[in-house]
Write a protein that binds this DNA or RNA. Structure first.
Lengths: 178, 178
DNA sequence: GAAAGTGTACCGTCCGGATAGTATAGTTAA
DNA sequence: TTAACTATACTATCCGGACGGTACACTTTC
């Protein structure tokens, strides 16, 4: 268990704190406790709270970017591969390690520019999606609807039922194939 | 200028603080300063920070609810009137007093149940939208895409250009008429 | 009709608790 | 034995909220 995996464990712990206790309880002590280390140990790895949050966002961004570009590259059909990759990965991400998204919540709270990696990621994808062979307005709508699901869940505004989510997923994928 | 309008002024001040300085700077002192009153005066109107945030959410929810139900009631065509009202009002809301949405950001940060009025609102609309004569999955997608726009703007993840936004608005409205 | 009382709006100060970050001594592993 | 890491003790700061007043418009009571 090298340095790096410990650092990532800490990031997961931080996400869990945000998810369980809210942004205001994302304290260094709470994260240390959740990660099973001391506050000093935490500060050894991430010398400030901002650095910790930055780590969360960067980890999320790297994961997301890699998954989506892999997915797009392995798509046999060229037309619409980016929007399909986006929909696929986002849905699966939402099912699996949902709580990594909480890094965004933390980032939004902590400082203005800690969301920069995410913003960059999104403008990249927007470019790809719009030059992907399908109607850019339609592609944008598919993407916005996908975002609407996880954002409203992250925000806890409303949670869509599993069955309905699957139906929506299917229809969005269909549209991305037309 | 009665008691009520002063209270609403304070809510706007609080939203402005969140929008300009972020959630962590939503302090009683900052809000008081923005509203041009003292901390004591602020606490007179809202006896705690939680009460203040609750006021923000409730104000937003009431406004939103009223606008959408008015809009739906005045729609000459019955089929799809709720989803149309939702799309219309949300787009216009986003253009106009965008910063009221910041109450949600504050609510999400402050406590678990301060978002309750919003959650209730959303489940009401979801019910209406799904029994509105058009395909519920399609209606849900229209609604999710609408949410995706303002949520990603609120989150500052990415901002869609005005032209594209109008095109999306138009297409969503078309779909809501089919 | 004036003295006494009441309610509303607001101000400025103070305090306790929480928290980010520092310092440093100790421990483990290569 | 040195770099990676932990644990603890401590400091400085910030913030929510309590509180004691002030101002003033009203109403009631004698």
């Amino acid at each position: 268990m090298g340095r790096n995996s410990r650092k990532i464990e800490i990031l997961h712990a931080a996400s869990k704190v945000v998810s369980d206790q809210g942004i205001f309880n994302l304290t260094l002590e709470a994260v240390a406790k959740e990660a099973g280390i001391s506050k000093g140990g935490l500060l050894y790895h991430y010398p400030s709270k901002e650095a910790l949050v930055h780590g969360m966002v960067e980890h999320l961004a790297n994961n997301y970017r890699e998954k989506i570009s892999n997915n797009a590259e392995n798509d046999p059909i060229d037309k619409g591969k980016w929007i399909r990759a986006y929909v696929d990965v986002t849905f699966n991400q939402t099912y699996q390690n949902k709580n990594m998204h909480y890094g965004l919540l933390a980032a939004k709270a902590v400082s203005t520019n800690s969301l920069d990696p995410i913003r960059e990621l999104y403008s990249e994808w927007q470019r790809e999606i719009e030059h992907d062979g399908i109607d850019p307005v339609k592609a944008s709508i598919i993407r916005l609807a996908t975002d609407g699901i996880w954002l409203s869940e992250l925000f806890d505004i409303y949670h869509i039922g599993e069955d309905k989510k699957k139906a929506i997923f299917k229809k969005l994928k269909d549209w991305a194939n037309e």
